[in-house]
Amino acid sequence: MSSLPMIPELLRQLMRKPATNLFPAKYLPPSVTEFLQSVASGKAHLTPPVETPPRFRGKIEYQRDGCIGCGLCVKVCPSHAIELLPETKRIRIWVDQCIFCSQCTDICPKGGLHMTDAFLLATEDRYEENLIVE
């Protein structure tokens, strides 16, 4: 087998467990919504995703109260995802457009912006309530 070194490797692997993390379930459920409902009611088990590292950049979090409306975050956002609302002097973040670079959290003089570890943000509606942070 020296000319086909893969064969022993494959046979060994056949006996081992696959490397895949079975998120959210072993096989694709026929309906994801129904699957999530049955998970909520405790009938099905959901395998959790791989853990995120400590300084992961996920969905942004905005502390409205500390904000002074300086607009620096708007200035550095590469994807123009942050909007300064002139009437309230507060910002609105369109997460749909956010590229998770965390530049706004670096520049915020009040430390009012944070990255959370939420990353399961896929949806069919780009303007969903979940995807607009204000």
Partner: peptide, 13 residues
């Protein structure tokens, strides 16, 4: 299924 397991995948049902 066998091919998938040899490649450390779960593979289709």
């Amino acid at each position: 299924k066998l091919a998938a397991h040899m490649q450390a995948r779960v593979g289709p049902p």
